[in-house]
């Protein structure tokens, strides 16, 4: 117990030292990378998920299987594939993105998009038949029909967004591989935790962990609050 308490005390000390130096930069980078990646997942994933959930086409079932598989894609695999694509001399090497924050955004978006697609498709596809029938009866343009459907199930879609955010912010394998954990440039909370643990700086590592949990808590609390506010109407 003594050891754990000691680490805990170190962690609290690191936190009470304010977000000075490294911590501030790491939190800032973590936040904007995760938010941009989640934003991309929302912009790409929700429309695709709506098409998949509402549409009637032959490949629907196989695409659903693929999306569900991709939802569980190992982050390190996503990282590896992106590394190969972005490798200098590789297909997109000329973009010069490897070991930069945009590469990390790409990696996280790759992981978040299937989640946004899969959960949105499940939510929209789960609309009661009466709602789908009424929606068809309105003869709206396709995009409007999708928008009404998403709005109808938005608490579940909000949950999809929260899940996507949770996935990218807590992910370490992919951002480590394509980001490189370069101090002050591509170091985020999760890779910093790995780093500090390796250097036996357990207090600092735990402090980063607390911040990570806190960020996930804030985002989920926000979405849950919106969901409850809506259902109270």
């Amino acid at each position: 117990m003594g050891f754990v308490l000691e680490v805990l005390r170190d962690a609290l000390e690191a936190l009470s030292g304010g977000l000075g130096g490294d911590l501030g930069a790491v939190v800032w980078l973590t936040s904007w990378i995760a938010l941009v990646a989640t934003g991309i997942a929302v912009l790409v994933g929700i429309p695709l998920g709506t098409v998949l959930g509402l549409g009637e086409f032959r490949a629907k079932r196989s695409i659903t299987v693929l999306v569900n598989t991709a939802m569980g894609m190992p982050p390190v695999l996503a990282g590896l594939v992106l590394l190969l694509l972005l490798w200098r001399g590789g297909p997109f090497g000329s973009w010069g993105l490897l070991f930069t924050p945009p590469a990390m955004v790409l990696a996280q978006a790759t992981l978040a998009i299937p989640i946004a697609v899969g959960l949105t498709a499940a939510a929209v596809g789960g609309l009661p038949p009466a709602a789908k029938e009424q929606l068809a009866a309105f003869r709206l343009p396709r995009w409007r029909r999708g928008a009404v459907a998403v709005r109808e199930v938005w608490p579940a879609v909000g949950g999809a967004v929260a899940a996507a955010f949770g996935r990218v912010i807590s992910e370490v394998g992919a951002v480590l591989i394509v980001g490189g954990n370069i101090r002050g440039e591509t170091r985020v909370l999760t890779t910093a935790i790995v780093q500090e643990t390796r250097q036996a700086q357990f207090g600092q590592a735990l402090a980063f962990g607390f911040v990570l949990l806190g960020m996930a808590l804030v985002v989920n609390a926000g979405i849950t609050w919106l969901q409850f506010k809506d259902s109270a109407q």
Binding site: N181, I182, R183, Q195
Partner: peptide, 10 residues
């Protein structure tokens, strides 16, 4: 000057 904080390979 950049620090990776990672192993030799990476």
């Amino acid at each position: 000057y950049r620090k990776t904080g990672q192993g030799m390979g990476l």
